[in-house]
Simulated scan of single mutants.
Amino acid sequence: MTGNGRVVVHADADALAEATAARLLLALVDTLSLQERADVVLTGGTVGIATLAAAAGSPLASSIDWTSVHVWWGDERFVPSGDADRNEGQAQAAMLGALPLPEENIHRMGASSDFATVEEAAFAYAEDIASEGAPAWDVLMLGMGPDGHVASLFPGHEGYAATGADVIAVHGSPKPPPTRVSLTLECIRRAKRVWVVAAGAAKAEVTARALHGDLELPAAAVRGTEETLWLVDAEAVAEV
C-alpha cells in the first residue's frame, strides 16, 4: 500500500495480463450480483490488449451476463475507423468479438471518418455518457506511458488540467497520432475502481514518481472512489 493506492506486483507482463483479466472478470461477476448493469472502461496498449485477450479466453467469461455489461474507452486516436491505431479495433479483435456483447452496449469513441472535427467526436461521446446516466464506472482501467500519461492526459498538456467536462478533444499529443479524444481527470475520478496497469523497465522511474505522489504526472492524480489499484510487473516497480 502507498499513499496513492494499493500496489499488486506480478512476475512479468504475461502474468500481469492473465491476473488482471481474472480480476476484471471477477469484478464484473461481483458487480452484477449487486446491480443490474456494469460499466467498464477499457484501455489499449500492449498489456491492456493482452489483458482483454486473456479475459476472452478465460472460463470465467461464460459466467457473466454480457448483455448487462457496457463497455467504454478512456481515450481514442482520432483516425479513420478501421485504422490499426484505434484502441477499439484492437479491443474488438482481442475480446469484444468473442463475447456475446450487444453492439448497443459497446460505446466507441468517434473516428475521423465519422466526424469532421475531433471536437465533434468529443461532444458526441460526452452526449453518449450523459444519455446513459453518466455512469460511475464500475471498473476503469488505465495504461500508463513512460512519461506518466494516462488516457490521453499528458504531463504539462492543457488536457490534464481540463475541468467542467467528461470528455475533451486533444490536440498536439506528445505521442502520435497528435489528435485524440479523452476522458478528463474529473470523469476518471468518478469511477468506483481505478486500475493503473503498467509493465516493463521503461515505466520504472515514472511508476516510482507516481506512487510517491508527483502530481506533475497524470498517473499520480487518478483514483477511484472505492478502490485505486496499481497492477504492475516486477520491472515496473524496480525503482520504488
Rank of each mutant, 00 (worst) to 15 (best):
169 A>I: 01
237 V>F: 13
62 S>E: 14
129 I>E: 00
239 E>I: 01
32 L>F: 14
145 G>D: 14
22 A>H: 14
158 E>A: 11
134 A>Q: 04
68 S>T: 07
41 V>I: 08
122 A>K: 03
206 V>F: 07
190 R>I: 01
81 S>G: 05
37 R>Y: 09
234 A>K: 13
203 K>T: 06
83 D>M: 01
168 I>N: 00
51 T>L: 11
160 Y>D: 14
107 H>E: 12
26 L>T: 10
21 A>T: 10
174 P>N: 11
60 L>R: 06
77 R>F: 12
182 S>H: 03
34 L>Y: 13
122 A>G: 12
42 L>M: 08
196 V>C: 09
145 G>M: 08
14 D>K: 02
9 V>W: 01
89 G>Y: 02
29 V>R: 13
72 W>N: 03
174 P>Q: 11
218 P>R: 00
195 W>P: 01
108 R>H: 08
197 V>Y: 00
150 V>C: 09
83 D>E: 06
144 M>R: 08
75 D>F: 00
48 G>A: 06
153 L>N: 07
72 W>G: 00
101 L>M: 08
95 M>G: 13
209 R>V: 01
137 W>F: 15
88 E>L: 00
26 L>A: 03
191 A>S: 15
220 A>V: 06
139 V>P: 00
3 G>K: 07
155 P>T: 12
97 G>R: 10
23 R>H: 12
49 I>W: 02
48 G>P: 13
238 A>F: 05
239 E>A: 06
228 T>E: 10
53 A>S: 12
143 G>M: 09
166 D>S: 10
218 P>Q: 06
56 A>D: 13
182 S>K: 02
80 P>Y: 09
84 A>Q: 06
138 D>Q: 01
238 A>Y: 05
82 G>I: 04
178 P>M: 07
64 I>H: 05
47 V>P: 01
71 V>G: 03
183 L>I: 15
187 C>I: 01
64 I>D: 04
44 G>N: 06
105 N>T: 12
44 G>V: 00
114 D>F: 03
171 H>T: 04
77 R>S: 09
13 A>D: 09
133 G>R: 01
136 A>Q: 14
157 H>K: 04
139 V>I: 09
